[in-house]
Design a protein around this nucleic acid. Structure first.
Length: 208
DNA sequence: CACCAGGCCCTAT
DNA sequence: ATAGGGCATGGT
């Protein structure tokens, strides 16, 4: 596995910022809504998630928990039977541990205990809802790193990649970086990449 | 029509 | 430890 120097990652972050500007990227009005979105967005296009989010908009967590047709409300986000269960677990955690009390110290570990919350979901919530020093390593991140730097990371290298990134960037930069990467991958570094028009192709190892 | 999207869980090697 | 299948909708 080729070693990615810290300076290269910093440089990539700069280049992406030059192209896309600042991204207040997670579109949510509250920590609760970040949590809802993090569950609903699992392996699902954000477009489909938005409709589900809209139906939960403004509701208190306790009201969503007692809602009788929650599955129907989030149906558009897909996997809705699982996600109804997962969402209830997360909101229940929110109500019991966060809403009434002060912010817990290590949300990431507590979230990982919940059914339906894996590393990426936990890190998304910890970063965007509670501004902790972490970053989700999603498939976009792995894809971009592999193409741009010629590495061959896979999901099993999650902790290594996360560790590298949080060792380099501060919390605000991590929020920014994840948004930039996902924005870029949605537009250019797709599964079938659009290298012809890619704004950062010059330094990319693919360089098609 | 096939394939994909801001994963996770469970199971069989 | 790791790969593979299931989960489900809506857009291209």
């Amino acid at each position: 596995m080729p070693f990615i120097p810290q300076s290269s990652l910093v440089s990539l972050q700069r280049d992406l910022t030059d192209v896309y500007g600042f991204q207040y990227w997670w579109p949510a009005d509250s920590p609760q809504e970040v949590m809802e979105g993090a569950i609903l967005a699992q392996n699902t296009s954000w477009k489909n998630v938005e409709k589900a989010i809209a139906r939960l908009k403004g509701k208190k967590a306790s009201d969503i928990l007692s809602c009788q047709d929650l599955g129907e409300k989030i149906r558009s986000a897909g996997f809705y039977r699982q996600k109804e269960r997962f969402l209830k677990g997360v909101l229940n955690y929110y109500v019991s541990k966060i809403e009434n009390l002060s912010l817990p110290i290590d949300t990431r570990w507590e979230l990982l205990e919940l059914d339906g919350v894996g590393r990426e979901t936990a890190d998304s919530i910890a970063l965007y809802a509670f501004h902790q020093h972490t970053i989700p390593v999603d498939s976009y991140t792995i894809r971009l790193l592999n193409r741009y730097f010629g590495t061959s990371y896979s999901g099993r290298d999650y902790e290594e990649i996360r560790g590298k990134l949080i060792g380099i960037f501060n919390q605000e930069q991590l929020m920014e970086l994840h948004g930039l990467i996902d924005e870029h991958c949605k537009m250019f570094c797709k599964k079938v990449p659009k290298c012809e028009s890619c704004p950062i192709r010059k330094k990319c190892r693919m360089n098609i």
